[in-house]
């Protein structure tokens, strides 16, 4: 028992349900509090000297974009867990993370488009970073569509997992081909396909290029939305487990009814 890893412990759905049920209210409450605090801090932060109050969109836009990418990484990790370790909850996790990740990606696209209107003068530009997020959204749609068009659930789970792993291998190439790549220390410089968007100003080798009064609310907001992501993911996983239990109970009932029918017929 002691040597079991964290993931092995929750290979038992009953144990997972008990643990996640106890965790749910705390996680949900905490995410509401953190997001509320982050929005309060964000909206009382000084407006940007160039972008004015539109900078407030950032506190939703940037975390949504991060979570859209994290969601895909989570699906890929779960798919790996399904295909390699055959973990019983891996597919539940991969299946339920897809719509949530897609929703955050869509949120990043919509907020980005609303932010683009005052800044660039149009709702949509074929900018490198917007485009690569749009393609990420298409990859999510592919996962959801493939799963929903195969009736046999275990089969759909495994095939979707293969697709998710292929996607996660190709995603960096899509990102580089659209956004370009610049690593001066290695002498690598691939130009971006087309760009208007500012480059990432938080994760940079020379430190964040964003003022501390905006960075702190942004990071708090990112933590809050991450908690929200996991709250929804956990809830969706619980629902999925319950749905599968109901389904297997129904199937068992049908089997029993059929068995009693045959005995009646035999008599």
């Amino acid at each position: 028992m002691q040597t079991q890893s964290f993931t092995q412990r929750f290979a038992n759905p009953t144990r997972f349900m008990a643990f996640s049920g106890a965790l749910m209210p705390w996680l949900a409450g905490l995410s509401v509090l953190v997001i509320a605090y982050a929005l309060y801090r964000g909206f009382t932060a000084p407006p940007d000297y160039q972008q004015g109050k539109t900078i407030y969109i950032m506190y939703i836009h940037v975390p949504a974009a991060w979570l859209g990418m994290m969601g895909y990484a989570l699906i890929a990790a779960s798919s790996f867990g399904l295909l390699v370790f055959r973990h019983p909850l891996a597919d539940v996790s991969a299946k339920t993370a897809a719509p949530i990740g897609a929703a955050f990606t869509l949120l990043a696209l919509i907020t980005g488009s609303l932010w683009g209107k005052p800044m660039w003068g149009t709702y949509w530009v074929w900018d490198a970073r917007l485009t690569s997020v749009l393609i990420l959204f298409f990859l999510y749609l592919g996962l959801i569509a493939l799963r929903s068009s195969i009736e046999d659930e275990p089969l759909a789970a495994k095939l979707t997992a293969v697709l998710a792993l292929v996607g996660v291998i190709i995603l960096p190439f899509i990102k580089i081909s659209v956004e370009g790549l610049d690593i001066p220390s290695l002498g690598i410089s691939i130009p971006a396909w087309n760009t208007l968007h500012q480059p990432s100003s938080v994760f940079r080798s020379d430190g964040p290029k964003i003022h501390i009064s905006q960075l702190v609310p942004l990071l708090i907001s990112a933590i809050g939305f991450t908690l929200l992501f996991f709250t929804m993911h956990l809830k969706a996983m619980r629902n999925e487990i319950l749905r599968r239990r109901v389904k297997s109970l129904r199937l068992a009932e049908v089997d029993r009814a059929r068995a009693s029918e045959t005995t009646v017929a035999a008599e």
């Binding site: 393609i135 298409f138 990859l139 749609l141 592919g142 569509a145 493939l146 697709l163 292929v166 996607g167 190709i170 190439f173 899509i174 580089i176 081909s177 659209v178």
Partner: peptide, 9 residues
């Protein structure tokens, strides 16, 4: 739907 995004690069 599955394959077109993979052709982007």
């Amino acid at each position: 739907l599955l394959v077109l995004p993979l052709y982007v690069p």
